[in-house]
Simulated scan of single mutants.
Amino acid sequence: MVMFFVRALIFLGSAAIGLVVASLMLPGFHLDWRSPLGFILAIVVFAVLQSVLTPWMSSVAQRNAPVLVGGIGIVSSFAALVVVALIPGVGLSIGEPLWTWLAAPVIVWIVTALATVLLPMLFVKKEIEEHRADKR
C-alpha cells in the first residue's frame, strides 16, 4: 500500500513538472499560478486522465492498430490536455499560437517520462530500499 502512494506521488510530481516546463517553454500554454486550487486541480485532473487514458488507448490500439502503440503516450497526453483545458475553473489554458497544441503534448510527455524515472532516484530510492529491507 505504501508503494502505491509513493508511485502516485511520483506520478503527480512528474505531471506537475511536465506542465510547469510546458508553461515556461510555450507562449500559449498557461498555468494559473494565482489560484493554488486551480493549479493543483489542473495537475491532479491531468495525472488522473493520463493514468486512465494511456492503458485504455494502448489496449484499443493494440487490438485495432498495433502500429500506433508507440505513440500512445503522446496521444493520451494530448487528450488529457484537451480535457483539462476545457474544464472551467481548472488552472490550465492553451491558446495561440496554434502550434502550441502540437508542441505541448510532446513536451509534457517527454518531461513527465523523464521525471517519472528520475524522481525516484533523487528522492525515494533510500526509503524504498529501507522499506524492502524491513519486509525481509
Rank of each mutant, 00 (worst) to 15 (best):
L92F: 10
M1G: 13
I110W: 02
V82R: 12
V6A: 07
V124R: 01
G95N: 09
D32Q: 10
I10G: 07
G28M: 04
V44A: 13
H30A: 09
E96T: 13
I87S: 13
P36H: 04
A61R: 00
L37R: 10
A61V: 02
A8N: 03
D134E: 14
K125L: 13
V6N: 09
A15Q: 08
I10W: 03
A115M: 13
S76N: 00
L26M: 05
V60T: 06
D32H: 13
H131C: 04
I10Y: 02
I128Q: 11
A15V: 04
N64C: 03
L118W: 12
A79C: 10
V67I: 05
G13N: 08
L122S: 14
V60W: 14
W101I: 07
V84T: 06
A113V: 14
P88S: 08
A103T: 02
A47T: 07
L118R: 04
P27E: 12
Q50W: 02
V6C: 05
R136V: 10
V45A: 11
V90K: 12
V52H: 00
A8H: 09
M121L: 15
K126E: 15
V2G: 08
L119N: 08
F5H: 12
P36E: 03
V21H: 04
I40G: 06
V83N: 10
K125Y: 14
V2K: 11
I87P: 08
L68F: 10
M57P: 01
S59H: 09
I107W: 00
I94F: 06
A65H: 10
M25C: 12
V75A: 15
V75W: 01
V108W: 00
V90D: 11
W109C: 15
V6P: 02
V90G: 09
P120W: 05
V69A: 02
K125A: 15
P88Y: 06
F46A: 07
V21W: 01
V117S: 11
V20Y: 11
V60K: 01
W99F: 06
A104G: 12
R7F: 13
P88Q: 12
I10D: 09
P97I: 00
E96Y: 11
G89R: 09
A16N: 09
E127T: 14
G28I: 00
I107F: 00
G38P: 05
W109D: 15
A8T: 15
I40C: 10
P36Y: 03
A65V: 03
N64Q: 07
E127H: 13
K135V: 01
L41W: 08
V111Y: 00
W109A: 15
L31F: 06
S93H: 14
M1N: 13
P88M: 11
A22I: 10
P36Q: 06
S51Y: 04
G89S: 11
P36D: 05
P66E: 08
T54E: 06
V84I: 09
V111L: 03
V108K: 04
I87Y: 12
A8R: 07
L53R: 00
F11R: 06
G71I: 01
L53P: 01
V75F: 08
H30D: 07
V6W: 09
G95I: 06
L9W: 09
L37A: 11
L122F: 14
E129L: 13
I110A: 14
H30E: 06
